[in-house]
C-alpha cells in the first residue's frame, strides 16, 4: 500500500482518494478485499471514524461495498465507474488549473497545445 498523507485536504477525502488511486492502478482489483478501517487507522494513526467516513464516500460512489461481517470489497464495475467519474472531473480539476498556470507563464494557446503534443509523443 502506498498511502501518503501529506496534503492539507481533509483526511477522510485523502483516505478515499488513496483507495481510488489503488483501484485506478488496479492494485485493488474488482472483487478484492480492501484493508479494514482498523488496519488503516492503526497503521497511519488516523481516527477510525475518519477512515470510515472516507470509506463511506467510496460506498456512495459505488466503488466499494460492504459484506457484512467480512469487510469492504471493490465493487464489480468499479474501475470503469471510476474512470467515468474522473473523466467528468478532468476538465475542472486538471485542465482549468493547467490553463491558469500556463497563462501565468505567458504561454499562448498554440504553445500549450504544442507542449501537450510533445507530452504525448515522448510518452512510452
Amino acid at each position: 500500500m502506498l498511502f501518503n498523507f501529506d496534503s492539507t485536504d481533509p483526511i477522510y477525502t485523502q483516505v478515499a482518494e488513496q483507495v481510488e488511486a489503488a483501484i485506478l492502478t488496479q492494485t485493488y482489483h474488482e472483487g478484492q478485499q480492501i484493508p479494514s478501517t482498523t488496519e488503516i487507522s492503526k497503521y497511519f494513526h488516523i481516527n477510525p471514524a475518519t477512515v470510515l467516513k472516507g470509506f463511506n464516500l467510496l460506498v456512495a460512489k459505488g466503488l466499494v461495498e460492504k459484506k457484512r461481517g467480512v469487510g469492504m470489497f471493490v465493487s464489480p464495475g468499479a474501475y470503469q465507474r471510476l474512470i467515468d467519474h474522473r473523466r467528468n472531473e478532468f476538465y475542472q480539476l486538471k485542465i482549468r488549473p493547467l490553463i491558469k498556470e500556463a497563462q501565468r507563464l505567458h504561454f499562448s494557446e498554440a504553445a500549450l497545445l504544442d507542449l501537450i503534443k510533445r507530452g504525448f509523443e515522448t510518452n512510452d
Partner: peptide, 8 residues
Amino acid sequence: RELVDNYA
C-alpha cells in the same frame, strides 16, 4: 499504533 488499536 497501540493507542488506535486499543481505541478500536
